[in-house]
Amino acid sequence: MIALLALLLGATLGLVLQPNVPLALAPYLPVAVVAALDALFGGVRARLDETFSDRVFLVSFLSNVILAVFLVYLGDQLNVGDALETAVIVVFGVRIFQNLAAVRRHVFRV
């Protein structure tokens, strides 16, 4: 519950401050967001499974984001940035779907 409030607080902060994305970070922000979303839905699923742990969540959050950004950075250096970005987003997308499916089973019991 506090986490949800924090999420909304962060969103409000983003709306109020209207930060400009630094040019150097701009290509990595989308993958970072998708990776973080994966961690978030994983956390929701764990919460419903009653296996949620702050430590696991934090580790998966940070490792997801760092790994995703690093992969895209690497891809940019290897001149396959577009393709690798797509790959990362597809993988995280699939995982988000799986997590959401698990959440759905919990909520609707189907």
């Binding site: 924090a6 999420l7 409000t12 922000l29 979303l37 956390g43 969540f57």
Partner: peptide, 15 residues
């Protein structure tokens, strides 16, 4: 954890 969630919201809106 709470901080991470806030960060996520912030990043999401920014993006």
């Amino acid at each position: 954890t709470v901080l991470a969630c806030a960060l996520l919201g912030f990043l999401l809106v920014t993006q």
